[in-house]
Nucleic acid binder design. Structure first.
Lengths: 137, 137
DNA sequence: TATTTTTTGCACTAATGTTGCAATTAATTT
DNA sequence: AAATTAATTGCAACATTAGTGCAAAAAATA
């Protein structure tokens, strides 16, 4: 089993308390996390700024990815499968439950292909589905 | 041809300078607009708060819709077709050009259907494609 | 263990969004 | 068309969220 220090070292990052703890949080969380969630769940053990910088670093290193939302919040998530190897795949669908408000990565569901108009080139595609999740059904 | 006052009245809104001007901006803009863009383009003729409230109102009345983004900005857009009648369709794909940074509504491209895992119910789906647009090709 | 490099936390700054309330403007009524 | 009513606007104050420089602290390296 891969420990947090392993993941961090693998990405060429120094192993620090904040990084271990925040990575931990992602590993034990099913859904996506916002900056605020992380501050809450770490009991403000780290400075706000540290959390911002850690998230930034994790995104750069491909440990977590950002999820598009319509309100102006930024959500981050770790993929559950196949993402430890360094190259991150975030071509899966994200699900936002309108009842419990959780955001869940549907790693099994791949973003379907779309035919773009002439002269448009696709690089990346993201999909967010809103509805009711299995727990709130 | 439908004028701004027509659209406003149709939505049961009083016709005011700010609403006319902001709606105008959307009508003559191809892509999506952020709050900041509107402030710039109206030469700060209206108060920041008025712009916020106007956007809110337009969203509520279905004149414009919000576009999901991964950075923490909120983008608004008017659909080019079929959206004047009151019930707004925003099941189309949004395109963000990584070169010119514009966000474009691809009204012709409908969000494809996805098969969700068991016990998940879909209400809404949004799709954002990043790439190079026709102008930057 | 000593040195170098990186990361952290603090203080400050900036940007963004919200609310109450009086003044103004638009819509309605007579 | 003027008066009344209703809605919208702008200001001020406040709240929240995010970003930066720099010295102190911690981690990595030698």
């Amino acid at each position: 089993m891969k420990t947090q220090p392993d993941i961090l070292k693998q990405s060429g990052l120094s192993v620090t308390e904040s990084r271990k703890k925040i990575l931990d949080l992602f590993l034990e969380t099913d859904g996506a996390l916002a900056h605020a969630d992380i501050e809450k769940n770490t009991a403000s053990a780290f400075d706000r700024v540290t959390v911002y910088r850690t998230l930034q670093t994790f995104v750069e290193k491909g440990i977590i990815h950002q999820i598009p939302t319509t309100d102006n919040s930024v959500l981050y998530a770790l993929c559950r499968h196949n993402c430890e190897q360094g190259h991150h795949h975030d071509d899966h669908v994200h699900f936002i439950c309108s009842t419990c408000d959780k955001t869940i990565c549907l790693d099994e569901v791949t973003v379907p292909d779309v035919k773009l108009p002439k002269n448009f080139t696709k690089q990346l595609a993201a999909m967010v589905v809103t509805g009711v999740c299995e727990d709130c059904k």
